[in-house]
Each structure stands twice: as C-alpha cells, then as structure tokens.
Amino acid sequence: MFKIIRSAVEKGNLVLGYVSGLGILLMGLMLFYEVVCRYFFRSPTIWAQEMSIYLFMWTMLAGGAYTLQQGKHVRIDLVIEHLSIRTQHFLEMVTSVAGMVFCAVITWQAYEMIVASIGYNKVSATLLRVPMWIPQMALLLGFALLTLQFAIIIVDRFNSVFGKNEEGQSC
C-alpha cells in the first residue's frame, strides 16, 4: 500500500514540478508583454501583474514538494555532513517530523481560510474580481503535498536507521 501512495505522490510531484516550470515561463512572458504594452504603447494591461502574482504563488507552492523530493531545498549541513550516515538519516527523520507537523498545520489553516473565503464570497480588490479561494488553493495543495513528501522521507529514513537489510539483519 505504501508503495502505491509513494508512487502516486512522486508522480504527482513530478507533474507539478514540470507544470511549475512552465508556469514560471508563462509568468515571464506575461510580464514581458506587460512591459512592452506599458513602455512602448503607453497602454498597460489590467490583468498581467495580478495574474503573474497568482501564477507565482501556484508555481512556488505546487513545486515545493518536487523540490523536497529531489533533495534540492536549502539545507545547512556544515556539522551534519561530518556525522555517520546512520546519524544523518536519524536527524533527517527527526527534522522531517517537525517539517511534516508544520506543513500539516499550514494545510489545515489553508483549508479553513478557503472555507471562509468561499463562505464570505471573497474576491480580489481589483477590476478582475478573482475569487480568492483560487489563489488560496495553492497554499492548501502545496503544503498538503509537502506533508505527504515529508511522510515519505520519514518512512525512508526510519527504514534506513531501524529497518532490516536484504539478509534480514538489523542495519
């Protein structure tokens, strides 16, 4: 069962990683268009800046779990790199538990914020009047995926520290 969940999370992270990359490209093109319209034609758009901000939120938050999966998040390993592999894995397991709890709390808070936004029918204070639950959903999705990715790391590190090797002996 865990292998199925891992596979689904990793495939989802990969897809969202690529979608995030394309989102950043699209954001750059939208801002380039805005600059051309504003400075060459003296006719700025009413949508480019706001949509770029929302797209930035989605790409950064949705791509976070892929970044964690690939081990590319910022980490300070000045001291840890001098410890044994087993100790490194144990510390990574402990810090991943803290990360998972933090991300789970943010996921729950994002859910409550979205429910309130839908309940109060909140929209952006711009001419576009974007329903606020749409950009807020990036927070929910991003941190939910980070929570799942931290859970996968915890299981992996637990197995490497306390699990059994191929011969059935303790590591």
Rank of each mutant, 00 (worst) to 15 (best):
M1R: 00
M1E: 09
F2H: 14
I4E: 08
I4V: 12
I4C: 10
I4M: 13
I5K: 09
R6L: 11
R6H: 10
R6N: 09
S7V: 09
V9F: 12
V9R: 05
K11Q: 11
N13H: 14
L14D: 03
L16R: 06
V19I: 15
V19K: 00
L22D: 15
G23C: 13
I24E: 12
L25A: 15
M27I: 14
G28N: 01
Y33A: 07
C37W: 00
C37I: 01
R38G: 04
R38M: 03
R38L: 02
R42T: 06
R42N: 09
S43W: 04
P44N: 10
P44A: 10
I46F: 12
W47C: 08
Q49R: 05
Q49N: 13
E50V: 02
E50N: 04
M51L: 11
F56A: 06
M57C: 14
M57A: 13
T59D: 09
T59G: 09
M60A: 09
G63T: 04
G63M: 02
G64L: 06
A65G: 08
Y66G: 01
Y66W: 09
T67E: 07
L68D: 00
H73Y: 11
I76M: 12
D77I: 11
H82L: 15
I85A: 14
Q88A: 14
F90L: 11
L91A: 14
T95R: 03
T95K: 00
S96H: 10
V101T: 08
V101S: 06
A104Y: 00
I106S: 01
E112V: 00
E112Q: 12
G119L: 05
Y120F: 12
N121W: 00
N121V: 00
K122R: 07
V123C: 01
A125T: 04
A125R: 02
T126P: 01
L127Q: 05
R129C: 08
P131L: 03
M132I: 11
M132L: 09
P135D: 04
P135M: 01
P135Q: 05
Q136E: 07
L140W: 04
L140T: 03
G142H: 04
F143H: 02
A144G: 11
A144S: 15
T147F: 03
L148N: 06
L148F: 15
Q149D: 07
Q149I: 08
I152M: 13
I152Q: 02
I153G: 14
I153H: 13
I153A: 15
I154A: 06
I154Y: 08
D156R: 02
D156C: 05
N159G: 07
F162T: 07
F162G: 07
F162M: 05
K164G: 08
K164Q: 10
E167R: 11
Q169P: 13
